[in-house]
């Protein structure tokens, strides 16, 4: 009995840490410049396809491609900011709507393009150092690809926290506080925003690569995770990294416990139920400062 309970709790934790990492990039971008990136799930999907292509054609293990894909996604994030977001920010009329539609349109474009290039078939990375391996400790099973993903997730969070302590991190924080004032003290706001987008995309890229090690890869895979990511960010508090971590794990556990004790089809009902309760008492989210 304890083994079953432990198994459910660990399953929730392993998935929750992935949710947290997916949400971290979203939270970062939102906290920095008040933009909800609706293409966040699609960036993750692109990272998964990048991992798949590198695995298929270069035979690289998912763990080895982590830095490569993270760099690719960083570049893509900067590109998206420079090419689209910066322009959307500069409109003077109905800026909020333009910002929503620019990332929303980008999401649909990326998904359609992926369908065109890779086809609609489901793909999987079937070999690798950890693929399909499971460790067993006292009747509890630990799927190694997911354990690795969780560890990478914790390292990534530590990295993000470390970055927030650096000069760049303080510039990020300052830009978030008052985007107009920072220009006066010589911080290039545009550059900070671009780097923020790069960092956010790289984070979800790391999540995508780790996920590709035990998940299927398909053009619509991002959508399944994006919704959870939005709730995670809102639950944890916009712009709060710690909030994303705690909320991600909380959502993973709520899902696991609901599926184990109640109806599995009610998973999302529980998640959104808890979100609404939190919203009633703490509208800014668990760790929100804004």
């Amino acid at each position: 009995m304890t083994a079953i309970i432990l198994q459910v709790v660990i399953g929730g934790l392993l998935m929750g840490l992935i949710y947290a990492l997916v949400a971290a990039g979203l939270s970062l971008i939102f906290g920095l410049m008040d933009i909800v990136n609706f293409a966040h799930g699609e960036l993750m999907m692109l990272a998964m396809f990048a991992a798949f292509v590198l695995w298929q054609y270069a035979g690289l293990d998912p763990l080895m491609m982590l830095p490569v894909v993270a760099l690719l996604l960083f570049g893509l994030g900067v590109l998206i900011y420079r090419g689209l977001i910066a322009r959307a920010l500069s409109v003077s009329f109905n800026r909020g709507m333009v910002q929503i539609f620019v990332t929303f349109g980008l999401a649909i474009f990326i998904r359609g393009a992926a369908q065109f290039v890779f086809g609609g078939e489901f793909k999987s990375i079937n070999t690798g150092w950890l693929a399909g391996r499971t460790a067993q400790i006292g009747g509890v099973y630990l799927p190694l690809p997911q354990v690795a993903a969780s560890l990478v997730c914790l390292v990534a969070f530590a990295g993000l926290l470390a970055i927030s302590r650096t000069e760049f991190g303080r510039a990020l924080e300052a830009t978030r506080e008052d985007r107009d004032a920072v220009a006066l003290i010589g911080i290039d706001r545009d550059r900070i925003f671009a780097l923020g987008w790069g960092l956010g995309a790289a984070t979800v890229g790391v999540a995508g690569v780790m996920l590709a090690g035990f998940y299927y890869v398909a053009p619509n895979v991002g959508a399944n995770f994006a919704l959870i990511a939005y709730v995670t960010v809102a639950l944890g508090g916009f712009g709060s990294l710690l909030g994303a971590l705690v909320a991600g794990v909380l959502i993973g556990e709520v899902e696991a416990v609901t599926a184990a004790l109640l109806e599995p089809s009610l998973k999302q009902v529980s998640v959104f139920g808890i979100y609404m309760v939190v919203l009633m008492f703490r509208p800014r989210g668990l760790f929100g400062k804004l």
């Binding site: 079953i4 198994q7 459910v8 399953g11 929730g12 392993l14 998935m15 992935i18 949710y19 959508a223 399944n224 995770f225 959870i228 993973g252 899902e255 696991a256 416990v257 609901t258 599926a259 184990a260 109806e263 599995p264 089809s265 998973k267 999302q268």
Partner: peptide, 20 residues
């Protein structure tokens, strides 16, 4: 008799119930 949510990100708790 397990009704699950289609396209869930994770089905590990559902698998646990099938195992039980």
């Amino acid at each position: 008799d397990i009704k699950y949510r289609a396209s869930s990100p994770s089905l590990s708790a559902e698998a646990q119930r099938l195992k039980a």
